[in-house]
Design a protein around this nucleic acid. Sequence first.
DNA 1: CACCAGTGATTACAAGTGTAATCTATAGCT
DNA 2: AGCTATAGATTACACTTGTAATCACTGGTG
Lengths: 138, 138
Amino acid sequence: MTEISNAEFEVLEALWQNYPASANEIIAKLNENGDTNTYGTDEVNQGKQWHDKTVKTLLNRLVKKKAVGFEKQQRHYLYSPLLEREAYTLKESKSLIERMFSGKIAPLVAGFAKQNDLNKDDISALKSLISDWEKNND
Amino acid sequence: MTEISNAEFEVLEALWQNYPASANEIIAKLNENGDTNTYGTDEVNQGKQWHDKTVKTLLNRLVKKKAVGFEKQQRHYLYSPLLEREAYTLKESKSLIERMFSGKIAPLVAGFAKQNDLNKDDISALKSLISDWEKNND
DNA sequence: CACCAGTGATTACAAGTGTAATCTATAGCT
DNA sequence: AGCTATAGATTACACTTGTAATCACTGGTG
């Protein structure tokens, strides 16, 4: 399976948020998340505007890469992701951790900790993950 | 600061392991880590062979990108990284976590846990990080 | 001192990317 | 039924990346 580029990933992301979706819906979603940075929408998503031609191109490439499928709905297409978000993000994470931290996850977390990038919530989420893990592996 | 590509990163990696280093030393290091996969060396590093011309090109690009510096030692150059490994890997990690997990680290760890990609060592490393964090933040 | 081996610099080149514009077919309006 | 707006397909184009080959300079060897 060919690689998915950053821009392609953002399109996929919009699709994962709601599918099946027409090209226009996808474009709308991409531009809605952080239009002129109207806070209150979703993420910080730096107010980038997507040109429709650009998104169409990316959709095409995703289809070629078999990351997105479509079904002809009358005249238009309805697109759907062919990858599961979770599987994909896990694969990418593992790849990065493999390349940068010899496959160990702790050094990554340690980096965050050292930079003060962890807050109470992150810590409790991690603790809860750990206790789950310990429940299942002992 | 321009982006560093994957291949460039591997060259930087070799540099970080030992610097200042001549081009030849870097090439040697790259090919040594996992030559014909003689286990016992270092990582699994899938036995890729680096062509010296290729490495020279990458070094040049890294210099242009100000990721690597050099000093003229008689006839040859001695290269050194201009980025700290830790800072760089942290930046990359944060960028990925931002893009894929809305900046939260726990979902990433959760993915690993779900896939059974955590072992006892990872867990104790994480626990130790957490207790350190709690020591410093309460 | 002339020549050569080797080093860094320059050039090459196809594939992938970001970003779009143009082409083409067609569904729906008048 | 003919025309137009539009959606998807095709084409464009500069920049990056992986992977090298060729060029040009220079210090050391014979």
